[in-house]
């Protein structure tokens, strides 16, 4: 298969970027989008050029490294990661534009690579449970309802790729934050810190300059893990409870978490 590509090239964060036209031919229909970029890079290197920089790691759709807008859509047309997007998904001879995510919160490092550390800092603000290391308890001492387990897993499958942010007209990371909060807040291990988690992660989300949710629903339409915006509804619920708890704590009625 043959393709005409318009690829974003940018030497570094501060520098101006722009599209560069490339043609790639003889691509196997079973090649993934990232493999196609490799084929193109080999050609660019053979011609003495600089290869296109892009993020990749697992190549099996679970790492969330890739940060491509393919024809403007995060990860491409099929609601899977770029490595699971195959060239057979495009018509032969198609013209495809490839850009990095376009959010001010995610500055471009080089070409198609963006800095997604704001998402890491949201995790640092509460996306964990505080447990001591040392001898581990017997797992069955802490039973979890299967429904809660499934619910937590549905949220925990978030790979933190940031497609939700890239698809959102408000540049909001609420789907990410909601998934991380829902994952831990629906399990007994996460329960003791549930209020602080909701409050801390929402505060960090705002701090990083992400926009707010207006229920467009674009995030769930591109999420490669098919996480539903129901987790945002749950985040609102937990946040509301957290703020009421904080008010009571300030008045000395309850212990702060």
């Amino acid at each position: 298969m043959n393709f005409k590509l318009r690829v974003w090239r940018q030497p570094s964060e501060g520098n101006e970027g722009g599209f560069e036209a490339h043609e790639v031919s003889g691509v196997d229909p079973e090649a993934s989008f990232l493999e196609m970029l490799d084929i193109l890079n080999e050609k660019i290197v053979a011609d003495g050029g600089d290869p296109i920089a892009y993020d990749r790691d697992c190549m099996e759709g679970v790492c969330g490294s890739c940060s491509l807008l393919i024809d403007g859509i995060p990860h491409g047309p099929r609601q899977v990661t770029s490595c699971q997007t195959f060239m057979r998904d495009f018509p032969d001879g198609a013209e495809i534009s490839v850009e990095p995510f376009r959010n001010s919160a995610f500055p471009v490092i080089r070409d198609l690579v963006v800095d997604r550390s704001p998402l890491d800092r949201i995790i640092e603000a509460g996306g964990y449970i505080s447990v001591t290391s040392g001898p581990q308890p017997e797992p069955n001492t802490n039973p979890v309802r299967p429904e809660d387990q499934e619910h937590a897993m549905d949220a925990a499958i978030c790979i933190g790729c940031g497609a939700c942010v890239a698809a959102c007209p408000n540049g909001s990371a609420m789907l990410f934050t909601g998934a991380k909060v829902a994952h831990l807040n629906s399990l007994p291990q996460g329960d003791p810190e549930r209020f602080d988690r909701a409050h801390g992660m929402v505060a960090q989300h705002d701090e990083e300059g992400f926009g707010g949710c207006t229920n467009f629903g674009e995030c769930q339409a591109v999420c490669p893990q098919e996480i539903s915006i129901k987790v945002i509804g749950e985040l609102y619920h937990d946040y509301r409870q957290a703020m009421l708890h904080r008010l009571r704590a300030r008045r000395g009625a309850v212990k702060p978490q």
């Binding site: 001010s104 698809a167 408000n170 540049g171 926009g211 207006t214 467009f216 674009e218």
Partner: peptide
């Protein structure tokens, strides 16, 4: 105030419409 915040966070290129409804876009 929310709109101002969201405009500032908006991607430099407007994301294509996939799922968002006419009602949500015209609020």
């Amino acid at each position: 105030q929310l709109v101002k915040r969201n405009r500032a966070a908006r991607p430099s290129k407007r994301p294509p419409v996939i799922e968002r409804s006419l009602a949500s876009r015209t609020m």
